[in-house]
Write a protein that binds this DNA or RNA. Structure first.
Lengths: 206, 206
DNA sequence: CCCAGAACGGCACGGTCCGTGCCGCTTTGC
DNA sequence: GCAAAGCGGCACGGACCGTGCCGTTCTGGG
């Protein structure tokens, strides 16, 4: 059996191409990219190194991805697209805490933490990577966050005035700040302190 | 008159070197780096291009900076180290708003916005750049923010429970998220919405 | 079943930029 | 006034880039 024009099985960063059920070349290449990045660091991730590691020609890479950044984006997302959903136990703070702890455990610490940081760095230089990252990872997460907070707001667990469009920025922003700017570890304790501060607000309470 | 071992006149990223009052080579090189970055983008910023633009040999660059990232860090900071102080009018929200608007105007929009984004991207790949950026720009800003909020807390304008160590993360994090992750414009209106949400808090008000 | 076309691995190429030597000259500071 | 250090210019080997061109293998429509 053969498939023609596999519809972005490996993401929008990929160029469409033919493939068969036996065509694991794209997967092989992405796995090789992760291997090289894990072993040598993102700085030494080159198309040549990936092709050599995967045992394919450079054309096989260039035919599928237009840049190293998009290859790396697909490589990372091919592993982590599942998970990171919100539970709904009825207690929004507990649910947020639980989901953010899971996200931080996955993306904030080795082995994936350094690679996720490198991907975010690449996004600062390559608009295509930034767009793909937002479209395929950040926005879906933002929508889940917004949905969970909307439910909570209807139940009176979140201020009726709260601007849901800002939810992702306000909840994740401080954690990304810690991760990307100060580059100190993002611990569960830190997440908890941020959540406490955000729910309480800066303004004085009567 | 001559000076020996100029003490980091151009920042910690620089290697110590002799200089005289007539030695404007470091300044010339940094200005050339900014010129090249502004004209061609950070991606095409190479030591060779900077040296050629500055009219110096490559050694003159390598003798002063150990990496392209540290040269770029010094170049950016050499322009923007002043300003960005907090006023104290007695109204903490107005003061925060005023200072953040100024910071966003300077670093969030052309011509410096794209270069600041590139610098933050470089910091994701080069720990020395990240460390220098935090030490020389982020931490001083954090301390100013903390100081202003401490005063406000003593005056009852900020919740007595608020964790001042988190001030910079919580106030700046959402803006950096918008700037680096979604890469949408950081407008004054956006800053105001974030401030409103942070002061109100997520939790329901009685 | 066959064959045109596409993808393949391998190789080589010119190009850019790296970081480092060496040369001969100028500036510096004891 | 002289040794040392910095200087611009130049050339080098090396890493990767992105792109051609081989001859081979796979694939899918007729």
């Amino acid at each position: 059996m053969s498939i023609r024009h596999v519809p972005c099985r490996y993401g929008d960063g990929m160029i469409q191409h033919r493939a068969t059920s036996a065509d694991d070349r794209a997967g092989t290449i992405m796995r090789a990219a992760l291997d090289v990045a894990l072993e040598a660091g993102y700085a030494r991730l080159s198309i040549e190194a990936v092709a050599a590691r995967a045992g394919v020609g450079k054309h096989a890479v260039y035919r599928r991805w237009t840049s190293k950044g998009l290859l790396f984006l697909d490589s990372i997302l091919s592993l982590n697209e599942p998970a990171l959903d919100y539970p709904d136990t009825g207690d929004v703070r507990a649910d947020l805490r639980h989901q953010i702890h899971a996200a931080v455990d996955l993306l904030g610490a080795p082995p994936w933490g350094p690679l996720y940081r490198a991907l975010l760095g690449e996004a600062q230089h390559d608009p295509a990577v930034a767009a793909g990252l937002v479209e395929r990872f950040i926005r879906p997460q933002a929508e889940k966050t917004e949905a969970r907070l909307r439910t909570a707001r209807e139940q009176g667990q979140v201020s009726a005035d709260f601007d849901l469009d800002l939810a992702m920025s306000i909840l994740s922003g401080p954690l990304y700040f810690q991760f990307m700017i100060t580059q100190e570890p993002v611990t569960h304790a830190y997440v908890d302190r941020v959540l406490d501060a955000l729910f309480a607000g800066l303004g004085p309470r009567p």
